[in-house]
């Protein structure tokens, strides 16, 4: 039940080495082992998307992935989206500008999901963005301002290329 294994990975650009229980999922590892509580756990069965993080650039549900599976990977959480100097990611700025969040609980997963999606699909339109976040549940906003924010961020990201 409590078999342990040593893993090493990078989280938000920093090297992390820890001994973890093999059954610990990546979300619990990030939140409780290394104190990055920005990643949220909303359903723990892979539907709500609040726990989404980037693993080697891909959006992944960290409640459905074991920490040991991230051995050797580069993980980015919501805490790692802004630049080291504090400059916000265009999505973060746009969520703030467009009132794209209310309680903020789903927000980290929305931001990470969209960060990966817009990186791969810079010309995404509204239906694309709605599909891209169809695996992220928000109970507060009705999604409208999240979509508006994502479209605006996509524009900013294109202009910045």
């Amino acid at each position: 039940m409590s078999e342990k294994r040593r893993i090493s990975l990078t989280v938000n650009g920093k090297a992390v080495e820890r001994e973890v229980e093999t059954r610990t999922h990546l979300a619990d590892f990030l939140r409780h082992e290394i104190g990055l509580t920005g990643t949220h756990v909303g359903c723990e069965h892979g539907v709500c998307g609040a726990c989404t993080v980037l693993v080697d650039g891909a959006a992944v549900r960290s409640c459905l992935m074991l920490a040991v599976q991230a051995d050797g990977a580069a993980v980015t959480t919501v805490e790692g989206l802004a630049r080291p100097d504090g400059t916000l990611h265009p999505l973060q700025t746009a969520f703030w500008e467009h009132h794209g969040l209310q309680c903020g609980f789903c927000t980290p997963g929305m931001l990470t999901s969209l960060a990966a999606y817009l990186e791969a699909h810079p010309n995404a339109d509204e239906p694309d963005i709605r599909r891209a976040i169809s695996g992220n549940i928000c109970r507060c906003t009705g999604y409208q301002n999240i979509v508006a924010a994502a479209l605006d961020a996509a524009r900013v990201m294109r202009e910045g290329r």
């Binding site: 104190g35 990055l36 920005g38 919501v78 805490e79 703030w96 609980f105 927000t107």
Partner: peptide, 21 residues
């Protein structure tokens, strides 16, 4: 007015009850 609440919430610095250790 843009929300005062947002800067912490968009950067992962919110403090929900499960974040209290």
């Amino acid at each position: 007015v843009k929300r005062l609440e947002d800067p912490k919430l968009i950067t992962g610095r919110g403090r929900y009850v499960d974040d209290i250790h």
